[in-house]
């Protein structure tokens, strides 16, 4: 159920990328796809009743590593998703730059009106 909604979100983004005519709508669909995949990876590492993977010291300045390792959520997907989010920002900037250049050249965002993409 909970994974199904996440996959549904990914497919909504895919639908926008495939069917929409507007370049900005395609970028929006792409962002939704990226976020859905990130959320799916985070969900795979979630432990029920878990804690954030950051060790806190108690009042005596000690840290209980064994209890931490038994209760924290998975740090590995979080680390990979963290890099993926920043990459998605760079890729979005690149896509928007391409869209703006296409707009400058053809005066529209509508890809069905842009017949000469080879330019």
């Amino acid at each position: 159920m909970i994974y199904g909604l996440c996959i549904l979100l990914f497919l909504i983004g895919l639908y926008a990328v495939v069917t929409k005519h507007n370049l900005i709508k395609i970028v929006i669909g792409f962002i939704i796809m990226e976020n859905a995949i990130n959320l799916f990876l985070i969900m795979l590492g979630y432990r029920m009743g878990g804690k954030a993977p950051i060790i806190w010291q108690d009042a005596a300045g000690k840290a209980d590593i064994a209890a931490f390792a038994n209760s924290a959520v998975d740090p590995l997907p979080q680390a990979l998703v963290l890099t993926s989010i920043v990459i998605s920002l760079g890729v979005t900037a690149l896509m928007v730059a391409i869209c703006l250049r296409v707009y400058q050249r053809y005066g529209t965002f509508d890809i069905s009106k842009i017949r000469r993409l080879k330019g």
Partner: peptide, 17 residues
Amino acid sequence: LKAPDIAITQMVVEVVC
């Protein structure tokens, strides 16, 4: 889902985006 690092990054990245 207990991922505060990602929440911070997603927040600022989303604003810039």
